[in-house]
Protein backbone atom coordinates (compact mmCIF):
# COMPACT_ATOMS: atom_id res chain seq x y z
CA UNK A 1 0.00 0.00 0.00
CA UNK A 2 2.90 2.37 0.67
CA UNK A 3 4.01 1.91 -2.93
CA UNK A 4 1.01 3.93 -4.17
CA UNK A 5 2.90 7.22 -3.97
CA UNK A 6 5.83 5.93 -6.04
CA UNK A 7 3.51 4.44 -8.64
CA UNK A 8 1.64 7.75 -8.88
CA UNK A 9 4.89 9.64 -9.36
CA UNK A 10 6.17 7.23 -12.00
CA UNK A 11 2.87 7.24 -13.90
CA UNK A 12 2.82 11.05 -13.91
CA UNK A 13 6.41 11.13 -15.23
CA UNK A 14 5.64 8.66 -18.04
CA UNK A 15 2.41 10.48 -18.89
CA UNK A 16 4.28 13.80 -18.95
CA UNK A 17 7.01 12.54 -21.28
CA UNK A 18 4.44 10.87 -23.51
CA UNK A 19 2.44 14.12 -23.63
CA UNK A 20 5.52 16.22 -24.42
CA UNK A 21 6.36 14.00 -27.41
CA UNK A 22 2.84 13.26 -28.60
CA UNK A 23 0.99 16.58 -28.33
CA UNK A 24 0.93 19.03 -31.16
CA UNK A 25 -0.60 21.95 -29.33
CA UNK A 26 2.02 24.07 -27.59
CA UNK A 27 -0.19 24.70 -24.56
CA UNK A 28 -0.70 20.95 -24.17
CA UNK A 29 3.07 20.47 -24.28
CA UNK A 30 3.46 22.98 -21.44
CA UNK A 31 0.74 21.16 -19.50
CA UNK A 32 2.50 17.83 -20.04
CA UNK A 33 5.70 19.43 -18.81
CA UNK A 34 4.01 20.45 -15.56
CA UNK A 35 2.72 16.88 -15.16
CA UNK A 36 6.28 15.60 -15.56
CA UNK A 37 7.41 18.18 -13.00
CA UNK A 38 4.75 17.12 -10.50
CA UNK A 39 5.64 13.45 -10.93
CA UNK A 40 9.29 14.15 -10.20
CA UNK A 41 8.35 16.17 -7.12
CA UNK A 42 6.19 13.34 -5.79
CA UNK A 43 9.01 10.86 -6.35
CA UNK A 44 11.48 13.14 -4.55
CA UNK A 45 9.14 13.58 -1.58
CA UNK A 46 8.66 9.81 -1.32
CA UNK A 47 12.45 9.32 -1.12
CA UNK A 48 12.46 11.25 2.16
CA UNK A 49 9.66 9.20 3.70
CA UNK A 50 10.41 7.13 6.76
CA UNK A 51 8.03 4.45 8.04
CA UNK A 52 5.61 5.65 10.71
CA UNK A 53 7.26 9.05 11.06
CA UNK A 54 5.53 12.42 11.29
CA UNK A 55 5.94 15.76 9.54
CA UNK A 56 9.19 17.62 10.28
CA UNK A 57 7.54 20.11 12.61
CA UNK A 58 8.54 19.79 16.24
CA UNK A 59 6.53 20.75 19.29
CA UNK A 60 9.58 20.99 21.55
CA UNK A 61 13.33 21.13 21.26
CA UNK A 62 14.71 17.55 21.31
CA UNK A 63 16.96 16.77 24.23
CA UNK A 64 20.58 15.61 24.08
CA UNK A 65 20.95 12.46 21.96
CA UNK A 66 17.23 12.21 21.30
CA UNK A 67 16.11 11.75 17.68
CA UNK A 68 12.59 13.04 16.99
CA UNK A 69 10.39 10.68 14.99
CA UNK A 70 10.10 12.76 11.80
CA UNK A 71 10.62 12.28 8.08
CA UNK A 72 13.67 13.69 6.33
CA UNK A 73 13.28 17.49 5.93
CA UNK A 74 15.95 17.84 3.21
CA UNK A 75 13.97 16.44 0.22
CA UNK A 76 11.00 18.54 1.29
CA UNK A 77 13.11 21.71 1.22
CA UNK A 78 14.50 20.68 -2.18
CA UNK A 79 11.00 20.09 -3.53
CA UNK A 80 9.92 23.52 -2.27
CA UNK A 81 12.73 24.99 -4.37
CA UNK A 82 11.85 22.77 -7.32
CA UNK A 83 8.19 23.81 -7.22
CA UNK A 84 9.08 27.50 -7.32
CA UNK A 85 11.53 27.03 -10.17
CA UNK A 86 8.96 24.89 -12.00
CA UNK A 87 6.50 27.74 -11.63
CA UNK A 88 9.02 30.17 -13.11
CA UNK A 89 9.84 27.87 -16.03
CA UNK A 90 6.15 27.22 -16.73
CA UNK A 91 5.36 30.95 -16.70
CA UNK A 92 8.23 31.61 -19.10
CA UNK A 93 7.14 28.79 -21.43
CA UNK A 94 3.57 30.09 -21.49
CA UNK A 95 4.86 33.59 -22.25
CA UNK A 96 6.89 32.20 -25.18
CA UNK A 97 3.83 30.29 -26.40
CA UNK A 98 1.84 33.52 -26.30
CA UNK A 99 4.59 35.34 -28.20
CA UNK A 100 4.75 32.56 -30.82
CA UNK A 101 0.99 32.70 -31.20
CA UNK A 102 1.11 36.47 -31.69
CA UNK A 103 3.82 35.94 -34.30
CA UNK A 104 2.34 33.09 -36.36
CA UNK A 105 -1.30 32.90 -35.36
CA UNK A 106 -1.17 29.19 -34.65
CA UNK A 107 -0.32 26.87 -31.77
CA UNK A 108 0.47 23.79 -33.88
CA UNK A 109 4.06 22.66 -33.25
CA UNK A 110 4.33 21.41 -36.85
CA UNK A 111 4.09 24.93 -38.23
CA UNK A 112 7.25 26.09 -36.49
CA UNK A 113 9.96 24.84 -38.82
CA UNK A 114 12.60 27.53 -38.37
CA UNK A 115 14.96 25.27 -36.43
CA UNK A 116 14.16 22.04 -38.30
CA UNK A 117 16.95 20.33 -40.19
Amino acid sequence: MEQVIIITGILLIILGIFGIIRSRNLVKIVLAFTLFNTGLNILMISIGYIRNAGAPILSQIPGQGEIPNIVDPVPQALVLTAIVIGLGVTALMLAYVLKLYQDKGTLDINSFKDLKW
Partner: peptide
Protein backbone atom coordinates in the same frame (compact mmCIF):
# COMPACT_ATOMS: atom_id res chain seq x y z
CA UNK B 1 10.22 1.11 -8.62
CA UNK B 2 11.87 -2.29 -8.13
CA UNK B 3 14.87 -0.91 -6.26
CA UNK B 4 12.86 1.51 -4.18
CA UNK B 5 12.87 0.89 -0.45
CA UNK B 6 11.43 3.20 2.14
CA UNK B 7 14.09 4.16 4.63
CA UNK B 8 13.86 2.90 8.17
CA UNK B 9 15.95 5.66 9.73
CA UNK B 10 17.08 9.17 8.86
CA UNK B 11 20.11 9.58 6.57
CA UNK B 12 23.14 11.47 7.84
CA UNK B 13 22.16 15.03 6.94
CA UNK B 14 18.51 14.59 7.90
CA UNK B 15 19.63 13.09 11.19
CA UNK B 16 21.78 16.15 11.94
CA UNK B 17 18.90 18.50 11.14
CA UNK B 18 16.45 16.45 13.23
CA UNK B 19 18.76 16.56 16.26
Amino acid sequence: YEDFKFQESLPLLGDYYAR
